[in-house]
Each structure stands twice: as structure tokens, then as C-alpha cells.
Amino acid sequence: MTSLMILMFLFMPQADLGQAGFSFENGNQLYQNGKYEQAISQYRSVIDLGYESASLYYNLGNAYFKLNDIGHAILYYEKAKKLAPRDADILHNLKIARVYVVDKIQVPNPGFIIKQWNRLITFFNTHQLSVMMVAFYIFFLLTLILYLVIRKSHIKSLIKFLVYPSAFAFAVFLLLFLLRLDYDRNHQRGIVLEEKVTVMSAPSEDAKEVFSIHRGLELIITDQSGDYYRIRLADGKEGWLPGSDVGRI
């Protein structure tokens, strides 16, 4: 059963992959000719096929930026950043796009230690952390196995030197990975896509208005009820808004 699944995974999407690459190239061509709307539909067709990549999201973000849709531009830059957290182009364009966000939220300075801690957690994305964790895990077990199996004493002592560092590296990445999973669960981020969104006190249309936010603002989705998201801003303000006004990163 599982082997069948692997086979399906390996062979089935080959035709689609070709199509995805073709659409991507098409989109790039349209972008260069200034036809941003058509470029966007080409890029989006790749996503509709079930594929994603940092470059694809980055290009989509650029196309939206050119159309002055800051909300979608930031959303796709953020998606790109999630896949490639240290790509200089993505970071640069994201910074420029954020200038045009209307709401300037005063985020209380979290302090040096918390800032560094968040940097550490978000330095690698979850995928990278999981790969590294597994790599060190295998390396560590391999050294252990060799240590147990090999009987020649001089090779054994050499291997012994490798066991401890690999165990340490594995432990560090395991911890980082688990912390990152926890961080991701508590930081389901979203971007405001509508020009102006009124945040309500409850998940219904006739609830009391609490405050309003504008296109491109980043927020954290803390809960969901029907079509409404419960959100929290960086400065701690909370409320409910229609889920359709927000794009999940």
C-alpha cells in the first residue's frame, strides 16, 4: 500500500510538472511585457496545478505590487519568505511593499533576548529544520552503529570521537524543530487584502465595530468561527473579521 503511494508520488505528476514550468515561463514573459494581470493568472495556474515555489510566489508578489495591490503583494512575498527565509530579493521587495501599508502599528520593543530568540527560531524554516534534524539523526545513529559493530579498536576510538558531536547536533536541531512547530501553531499569520476592513467585537455582521485596519497589514489568526477569523494585531488589539478579507500566509 505505502509503496504504491510512493510510486504514485514519483511518477504521476510528471506531466503536470512540465505544464507548471511552462506556465511559469509564460508568466515571466507576460510580466516583462507589462501585462501583469495576465502574468498573475499564469502564475496562479501553477498553484492551481498543486505546486509552489519561492520564486513563483516572489514573481506573483511582484506582479501584484505593479498593480498597486499591496495586500496580495505582501501576502505572496510572505509566502515566498516562508519557503526561502533568507532570500535577499524577497526580503528587499517585502520591505518596500510594507512602506505602503497604511496602518503603522507601534509594536512594543520586545527586548534584546526575545528578539534574538525569535531570530533563532525563524532563521530556518520548518522544512529546513526537519531535514537537518533528520540528517543529524541518521548520522548520529550511523556512528553509533559503527561503534557497536566494528571490533578493531583503533577505528572504534576514532568513531567514538564522532558520536558525541553528532548526538549534540541532533539534539540541537530536534529542539529547534519542535520549538518551530510550536511557533508555527501559535503564529498563523495573515495579511489584510481589502482596502479597509472593519474589525468587529464578535463574529457576526451586526457586532460592534472595534477598530478598522487597511490593506497589507500583517495580523495573527488566533481562532476561527464560521466565516470569521479572530485576529490579533502586533500591538495586542483583538477582534473578529470576515475570513475572506484576509489571506493566510
Binding site: 511559469f24 510580466y31 519561492a54 520564486s55 513563483l56 514573481n59 511582484n62 528587499h92
Partner: peptide, 11 residues
């Protein structure tokens, strides 16, 4: 903003 990425990525 910086220009789009042209090389076909690994999807």
C-alpha cells in the same frame, strides 16, 4: 522593487 526570478524553479 527587484526584478522577478526568471530561472525555472524546482516546484
Amino acid at each position: 522593487i527587484r526584478f522577478i526570478k526568471l530561472h525555472s524553479p524546482r516546484f
